[in-house]
Design a protein around this nucleic acid. Structure first.
Lengths: 188, 188
DNA sequence: GTTTACATTTGATAAAAGTCAAAAAATAAT
DNA sequence: ATTATTTTTTGACTTTTATCAAATGTAAAC
């Protein structure tokens, strides 16, 4: 848990009381490779900090899996829309490597926000960070062709390339797996 | 300004002091149709609430304009990445209808956040809202074809359809203007 | 080491979307 | 109203990407 506090502390110094209140409510969870950390179909109540490992968010569209994000060490992961809006999730979260997570549930997090209004600053900052990430992904989808998107992924997110499967990467880039395979063969 | 306070108040009741501090720092700006409200190439220091009108965000890619968002009455608009990260803007904001805006500058907004930590809650809430909007747009770009994206725009954002030009809408959907025109002719 | 399961590549073909150029339609300016 | 300007549509053609099917490669399980 030390690593989570270091992470939060670098965003904003945490008071001892805030630290204690967080400590009381955060729990540890292990997720093995292939494990569905958050399932679709019900309201997602858990938010996770990734201490170690690799997760992805995906959902089904016309019978196929669409991966919409990847998350690593020091990232926050949840079924975002469902967690924030407290509506039924259509998004699944899966561990694609053995992972160690620190979790907090929705009500507990809101209790923290209520008891420590300054914690909203961290909430705002993290939401902004993930907004930027999404913006980057979205721009790549909007005006780049398959090859350009792939090249950008190579330079901006080599981690994803190394650790995710071709199929997951392809759907993340909004292209078919065959197209990605062909692009890759031409580049190397 | 009454309308802005009503908007904020419905997110969280504003204390009289907060209201006064906002009042001191918020100014009014008129932007005419075609006016560049925020230009690229320098750090964006202004955030606007749209009292009335219609704006779009766009940037240039391979010599062409790419529209990434539209914003209406009761929306917040700025060159998002530049404003939040205080980095050089690559995004322009243009009024595509005569508009009335309420603005605040970056330092003043942060003064508000400092003097009134609870205002971070509103900041978090609004960031989350725009995160959802972006997510919706991004998903549409990722796994829908041109026709599906257009049909979704018709049902989800008829306002955009009515008020934006074909070229703007096409680039927003990530397709060429000719393709959009052909799709439209087949549907009607 | 062989079998089984799963992931990736390759080939042939079809569908979707882009490009360039010109015509038509809609708006704005005089 | 007429002209000028901008926006939208249409046509011919090219490029990109998807799809389906099969082959190959890789890794785990027995």
């Amino acid at each position: 848990m030390e690593k989570l506090f270091r992470f939060l502390n670098q965003l904003m110094p945490l008071s001892p009381e805030l630290k204690a209140d967080l400590n009381k409510r955060i729990y540890k969870r292990i997720a093995m490779h292939g494990e569905l950390v958050i399932p679709e179909g019900k309201v997602c109540t858990q938010l996770y900090f990734i201490r170690r490992g690799f997760l992805r968010g995906f959902h089904y569209q016309k019978g196929r899996e669409i991966t919409t994000w990847f998350a690593f060490e020091n990232d926050i992961a949840t079924s975002t829309y469902s967690f924030l809006a407290q509506k039924i999730a259509y998004e699944n979260v899966e561990a694609i490597e053995d992972s160690i997570l620190y979790g907090i549930n929705y009500d507990d997090l809101n209790t923290i926000y209520r008891l420590h209004p300054e914690f909203n600053y961290i909430g705002r900052l993290l939401t902004e960070k993930y907004y930027f990430d999404l913006m980057e992904h979205s721009l790549s989808l909007q005006f780049q062709n398959a090859k350009e998107s792939y090249l950008q992924l190579i330079t901006d997110h080599p981690q994803i390339l190394k650790r995710a499967s071709l199929g997951h990467i392809a759907s993340y880039l909004g292209i078919s797996q065959e197209t990605l395979s062909r692009i890759r063969s031409k580049i190397v």
